[in-house]
Design a protein around this nucleic acid. Structure first.
Lengths: 249, 249
DNA sequence: TAGTGGTCTAGACCACAAT
DNA sequence: TTGTGGTCTAGACCACTAC
């Protein structure tokens, strides 16, 4: 019944073996020559099938060695509004997630003052060109980068305060930092989308150079309806699961 | 600096033109022959580049005619706990989203009693084999399918009540349906992941037959900590954006 | 009929790993 | 040195569309 072209049939077949666990992380797939025999197709067709799985992050080819199943350990990013404030002072949301996954969390960051672009201005409900503090984060779990983020805060809110530079307070998260200067964050909005990773992200997330996909979360924090921080959070789409707890009413 | 292989360079180049709006929905790309000339590569390389973009849902080839930019209109799925109960009686969450997007919403569904699989049992905190009501939904916007969903409800909760068959009350959503039988849903959990679409989903979502990607939301509703419904919701990853509003504290 | 995209073959050449 | 995967060429054959 399946009238799929050969390269898709091979890709589906191998994909099923990986997601079902029949092939496990770090296992070596049969060589190209063997796959050509088994499926009775040319090398090009096998290569096409493997290229699809590589872009999905399921396998990784090593020239001269073989094709291996990639570690697909699920990382979880929790977004749990109700717990954010009570846990402040102890750890950032990211550090909490890492600890929950039994991993050693860490991050790098750098900040600079910039003028708001049109898009950032719209998200922060300020004027294009207004001064913002831009911070880039790179989050690590067990030494490997797993999240990239860029945040923007209107300097009209934080200028001259003790939390003007986010990196110094990154350990506790945005909600707790804003609490310090009397800004009560009471609401957040997250917009989740998916797209192909760009070159910077491929390198920054240690994705295979041949490409990969990311989930992008555009998050904005509000205090009494006024945006006080917005961020783009970029995650390896094949490795991450996003967990939302939603109180009803 | 960019040492990308030709097929990825071409894919990135065309992708950039599409997402930037330089090439718009329904525009026709140059023919394979022209792209071969422009990039000075063989047909295979151009085809590889186009295959990547097709799998991403950005383009669609029509044999004998040309390659066209696909309509990438963003659909938004809102998950807004605080408004769910107050809006009940008027429309389901899906119908509300469709209306917000200026579209005509609709759905098909079919229900049957089944025995809980191990996975469903774990999600509903019941025993494998316990009876559940399984319902499959297919949501339409302007006549086109945009969401697939399968839900499971423990019959221990709904057996013999007026909402035993979810389809008859689908118009109002789970929270309002459960309200009718005195079950106060007060919490929901959603787990968002991404993966390749399977054959059923390709057909059900009118995705290109050559493949595509979906966002999968595994949602569970709770009443006083007890799971009363769980569902797998499948969305075209290239068309949908997920919007979460998160009250802090 | 001419042009289009979709699938597939049968290789070549290279860098690299394992030995 | 042999085998491996990554990139790429130069086509063929087919189904389909537009004219």
């Amino acid at each position: 019944m399946s009238e799929l072209p050969a390269y898709l049939r091979i890709a589906s077949d191998l994909r099923a073996k990986i997601v079902s666990g029949q092939l496990r992380a770090a296992d070596r797939l049969p060589s190209l020559a063997r796959l050509m025999e088994r499926y009775a197709v040319s090398s090009t067709i096998v290569r096409n099938a493997l290229a699809i799985l590589a872009r999905e992050g399921l396998i990784e080819g090593r020239s001269g060695s073989g094709v291996y199943v990639r570690d697909a350990r699920r990382l979880v990013r929790r977004s749990n509004g109700r717990q954010q404030r009570t846990e402040s002072g102890s750890a950032s949301p990211f550090a909490r997630d890492a600890a929950a996954g039994g991993q050693q969390g860490g991050w790098e960051s750098d900040s600079a003052e910039e003028a708001a672009t049109e898009e950032v201005a719209a998200r922060l409900a300020i004027e294009p060109g207004d001064p913002v503090m831009r911070t880039r984060y790179r989050y690590l779990a067990d030494g490997h980068p797993v999240q990239l983020a860029t945040s923007w805060e209107p300097l009209a809110v934080t200028r001259g305060t003790s939390v003007e530079r986010p990196e110094e307070g990154a350990a506790v998260g945005v909600v707790a930092r804003m609490d310090h200067i009397g800004v009560r964050v009471d609401d957040a909005e997250e917009r989740v989308t998916w797209r192909a990773a760009d070159e910077t992200e491929l390198a920054g997330l240690e994705l295979p150079q041949r490409g990969g996909y990311v989930l992008v979360i555009r998050r904005t924090y509000f205090a009494a309806g006024v945006p006080v921080e917005t961020a783009d959070i970029v995650l390896d789409a094949g490795r991450y699961e996003l967990l939302y707890r939603i109180p009803i009413e």
